[in-house]
Design a protein around this nucleic acid. Structure first.
Length: 273
DNA sequence: GAACCCCTGGTT
DNA sequence: AACCAGGGGTTC
């Protein structure tokens, strides 16, 4: 589901209501979603207070008052919602954190792909440790160098490289297509043919696309809502994603749909080369 | 790298 | 009934 702009919006909408909350109880309704185990999670979390919310790539991190952390990954359909305890549990609720103030944090995930991991910062899970640079919070040279060094030692379409979380953190299927449209580059282009000037253009496009999407509080196509249950607005501003056979908003050509790097992919045959 | 898998639900 | 979906881990 959510990519960087959606997770960032969830983080922003949950920060003010979660900071300082004390965890009174934990309900695990889907054992396979949590690590190390529901027993250990419950033992570690009850009595803890939330001191900070962070985002790393597409992960939302809860920092607790004993320095432990909980990482949520929402995958395709996960939602994190702050609701009164009295609100009935919605179908497909995976995890509930109950606080001492009669509110709760619900993790709802119809496809059950989402994960919740408790860890200590000294021993982060592999998936977090391997993440590439944060596009919005890392200096340009570091991000561009991550893209170009990865490009030098791999083959295949440029879209696949941008989707690789080890190369750059936070881009998913929507924002790679939007980025490559803005950069004027076809998703199918081989990483080997991309010039230095084009990598610069891709980098700038990533920043523009992500910042605008955050301003619009994320893209709600089907499942995504923020921590208050409100949809985002960026679906109204998408240039190519989900616009198969519709006219390009820049040139009027018919937006093409194909499969690249295993994902449904949209591009303008005239604007992108 | 591509292909398949984990799941449920919406669309064609 | 078949195919598709804001993801990513594991297997060829």
């Amino acid at each position: 589901m959510p990519e960087l702009p959606e997770v960032e919006t969830i983080r922003r909408t949950l920060t003010s209501v979660l900071i300082g909350q004390e965890i009174q109880g934990v309900e695990v309704l889907l054992e396979k979603a949590v690590k190390p185990s529901s027993e250990q999670l419950i033992r570690a979390l009850v009595g803890r207070k939330i001191v900070e919310l962070r985002r790393r790539g597409k992960y939302l991190l809860l920092l607790l008052d004993d320095d432990s952390r909980v990482a949520f990954h929402l995958r395709m359909t996960g939602r994190l919602l702050f609701l009164p305890k009295l609100t009935p549990l919605e179908k497909h609720t995976t995890l509930v954190l109950n606080f001492t103030d009669d509110h709760s944090l619900r993790f709802v995930d119809p496809r059950k792909f989402g994960t919740v991991v408790l860890y200590w910062p000294s021993t982060p899970p592999e998936s977090l440790k391997k993440l590439g640079p944060e596009p919005l919070e890392t200096e340009k040279a570091v991000v561009v160098s991550s893209l170009t060094t990865a490009a030098a030692r791999r083959k295949g379409p440029v879209k696949g490289l941008l989707l690789d979380q080890r190369v750059i953190a936070g881009l998913g299927n929507i924002y790679t297509d939007e980025t490559l449209f803005l950069a004027g580059i076809r998703p199918t282009r081989s990483v080997r043919e991309i010039t230095a000037a084009e990598w610069e253009k891709i980098y700038q496009s990533i920043l523009t696309v992500l910042e605008l999407a955050i301003e619009h509080r994320g893209t709600s196509r089907r499942d995504y809502v923020d921590g208050r249950g409100e949809p985002g607005n960026h679906q109204c501003y998408l240039q190519v994603y989900d616009r198969k056979k519709k006219p390009c908003l820049v040139c009027g050509s018919e937006i093409q749909y194909t499969r690249v790097a295993g994902r449904g992919t949209y591009y303008c045959p005239a604007c992108q080369h």
